[in-house]
Amino acid sequence: MADTSVTRAVLLMNLGSPSSLQVKDVKTYLHEFLMDKRVIDYPYLFRKLLVDGIIVPFRAPRSAEAYGRIWWEEGSPLIVITKQLVAALSARVHVPVQWCMRYGMPRPDVAMDTLAQQYPNLQEVLLIPLYPHYAMSSYETAVVYAQHWHRKKRYPFRLAVLKPFYDDADYIQVLSAHIQNFLKPDYHLLFSYHGVPERHIRKSDITKQHCLQRTDCCEVPSPAHAFCYRHQVMVTTRLVAHRLGLGTDQYELSFQSRLGRDPWLKPYTAQRLQQLPAEGKKRLLVVCPAFVSDCLETLEEIDQEGRKTFLESGGESFEMIPCLNTIPSWIALLQKWIDQFVSGDQTMLWNAQPIKQAV
């Protein structure tokens, strides 16, 4: 029965996952993901030839095997964790909470359909992209995709958006305290962020004259930083390291998941994992703050492949710090932001349209 008393709701949005381990389902997922013009930002026909003719046919079987190594009994870890997060939040907030994915199912309109049918007097939905940092291939594409379905189906409610929270004091405290639980003497801490092509950074530069134009561009104040992934991950790293009291020789950051041969943000995680033992850093902790939920990129790429690379290169001990997943402090922070939204506080809302890239 429809509930006419509810006027606000929440929609969590994560990356997505194949629906099963079958190669055909992995192909479907990879096609949707890689055909996104904010992921591979080439002209459509070239992108289609590259994705459907080269990448997907060769990558899908390997990806299916990789997913198989991290798949849980309940299903895809990312989907399971997202469902757990929704359940935990639903028990703590006084508004409905739904979830959707940028790639795969459920799409944003599926979740919005459910909300519209169950709560006919809904006035506003808070979209929470589960990405701390702004990047055209993560936060931006998620928001634009949700906005697309919101406009296309002409839902009567407004769609508010949580802004990137990479420098939010409460988020930094939660992330730092989580990392603190794993810190050990004589261990080196590697912040491994998902990489992006350098051209994405330049395209996201609203000034068109700042990002990657000088070696210290991320330290020089600029309006471009509101959209600059590189700047934002550096800020997160610096704030967390400061809160943990780490010296500059105790931590570093790198970028993982490179695809193709174009220049991506450096240094590359895979290379650093090979190099660190020779530099005397043989005991390693790795944290992946670009993700709030463990997924293929953390569980397989880092905890399995990265571990193997590091140990075979002479490392002695390797530990991956889990993502925030459903730890109580993370759930409490999400609850705080939701409560602020319900009360009319717009402090954590995104107040500008994500830029529309010319790709």
Rank of each mutant, 00 (worst) to 15 (best):
E73D: 15
V93H: 12
Q256T: 02
V286G: 05
Q340S: 10
P185E: 07
D205E: 00
V95M: 07
L334S: 03
Y171C: 15
V125E: 10
Q275E: 11
T141Y: 01
G344Q: 11
K163I: 15
V86Y: 01
Y193D: 10
L115F: 02
Q84L: 06
Q118S: 15
L246P: 01
H231V: 03
V110R: 14
E73F: 10
A241P: 00
E279F: 08
D167T: 09
Q147M: 13
K37Q: 14
L183A: 03
C323R: 02
P156I: 04
L259R: 14
A241F: 12
S20Q: 11
K27W: 12
Q22Y: 14
D109I: 02
S63Y: 12
K153A: 11
K308F: 13
L244Y: 10
I331Q: 06
I206T: 12
D205P: 03
V161D: 02
I327M: 15
L334K: 00
T7I: 09
W72G: 11
Q335L: 04
R238S: 13
A169H: 07
F157S: 09
T347D: 15
E297F: 06
R307C: 11
V110W: 10
F255Y: 08
V286T: 05
A135V: 04
F191A: 03
K152R: 12
L244R: 07
Q123C: 04
A91H: 14
T7F: 12
Q84H: 08
A290R: 00
V125N: 14
F157Y: 00
G280N: 06
L11M: 12
V110T: 15
L183W: 10
Q213S: 07
S20K: 00
R202C: 13
I331E: 07
K336E: 14
I70T: 06
Y103Q: 07
K48L: 15
L284K: 00
R59D: 02
Q209C: 14
D339W: 08
H148Q: 12
V144W: 02
D345C: 08
D25H: 11
M35W: 10
R151W: 14
V80R: 10
Y193T: 03
A2K: 09
G16N: 04
I55N: 02
K163R: 14
A135C: 04
A160F: 00
S17I: 04
L244T: 01
H194L: 02
R230E: 09
A160W: 03
V161K: 07
L334D: 11
T28K: 15
L285Y: 11
V97H: 02
E305A: 09
Q275N: 07
Y67H: 06
Q209N: 15
D339P: 05
Y134T: 04
K203H: 11
V80G: 09
K281W: 05
G195A: 01
S222C: 04
Q232L: 01
L349N: 01
F46M: 13
C288W: 07
Y67P: 13
G314N: 09
S176A: 14
I54S: 08
